[in-house]
């Protein structure tokens, strides 16, 4: 049967349910890398149905116990790759130690999609319009990767390369994401501008700052839906570090955004409009941060 461009049924593939990380890696290699890992499937299944992808083998990783669970490990929270978006809302450890993820979660898709979509899947896909990949940048998180040559950890700052391009090599698996524990002298803020709740954002932003009384010692600001990948606003950060959140420094940070973001040409939203929206959003979030958000 030829479904042509309107295909909503996937091409044939074989299905393998892996019980361990090694089984999953081995299966991927033996399929000559013509395989896909499936986690929540909330991005992959539509891509298969539309035949944007047609791998020979689908490797179900959702039964691998090692990829599950949220726990403290030293100065970090280890968030297993299979942690579902809905768990970001319900898991007390996330609310306490990674509140920025907790705040971002209600903005990710719709409830039923959050019931299946996973943190690891979202970071692996690296959609530039997604909330969580951008938040790993704001949180200075590390992504743990398992591959043929063993395990390694990559800083979020070095993970996102370009449009859907990351440090992840074919056949490699994200096992967990490590997030430094939220501290008493820190504040965070998150928001996005979208046409409809649940839609991908026109512009979104999350930030995490460390304060000494009202002076910013350190701040990480990350935007999504503003370019080919999630982006840190380093010039805006530099405009704020060492200062209080008064009108003058907020305006300086907003002005600096021009050097940070590279909004793509797009029929619906011209780059100038996106930059404008990013400035509006930055102003609002810094205002909230100043109020102790």
């Amino acid at each position: 049967m030829d479904f042509g461009e309107t295909a909503v049924k996937a091409s044939a593939f074989s299905y393998f349910r892996a019980a361990t990380i090694d089984q999953a890696l081995d299966a991927h290699a033996r399929a000559g890398d013509d395989a896909r890992f499936i986690a929540g499937g909330q991005s992959l299944v539509p891509a298969l149905s539309l035949r944007l992808q047609a791998p020979r083998l689908l490797i179900d990783i959702t039964h691998i116990a090692e990829l599950r669970g949220v726990r403290r490990e030293g100065a970090c929270l280890r968030i297993g790759a299979l942690t579902r978006h809905c768990e970001m809302l319900s898991e007390p450890l996330i609310a306490e130690f990674a509140p920025l993820l907790h705040a971002a979660a209600p903005f990710v898709a719709h409830p039923a999609i959050r019931n299946r979509g996973t943190f690891g899947g979202s970071v692996a896909l690296a959609d530039p319009a997604s909330e969580f990949p951008a938040m790993t940048l704001a949180l200075d998180a590390e992504i743990e990767i398992a591959g043929a040559s063993g395990r390694r950890r990559v800083k979020a700052d070095e993970f996102f390369f370009d449009l859907f391009e990351t440090a992840l090599q074919p056949g490699e698996l994200i096992t967990a994401i490590y997030v430094p524990l939220f501290k008493a002298d820190q504040r965070f803020a998150f928001d996005e501008l979208a046409r409809r709740r649940g839609d991908y954002a026109l512009v979104g932003c999350g930030m995490l700052a460390t304060f000494t009384s009202d002076r910013i010692d350190d701040i990480r600001i990350s935007f999504f839906s503003v370019g080919n990948r999630p982006m840190r606003a380093k010039a805006a950060e530099a405009a704020l570090i060492g200062f209080g959140l008064d009108a003058e420094h907020i305006a300086a940070a907003q002005a600096a955004l021009e050097d940070d973001l590279a909004p793509p040409e797009n029929d619906e939203v011209p780059p100038a409009m996106r930059l404008h929206l990013a400035r509006v959003l930055l102003g609002r979030l810094l205002g909230r941060l100043g109020e102790g958000a």
Partner: peptide, 15 residues
């Protein structure tokens, strides 16, 4: 027990 899209899942996954 949780609401899920049955179009975003292959039947084999629900085994």
């Amino acid at each position: 027990g949780r609401a899920v899209h049955s179009c975003l899942m292959f039947a084999v996954q629900a085994d």
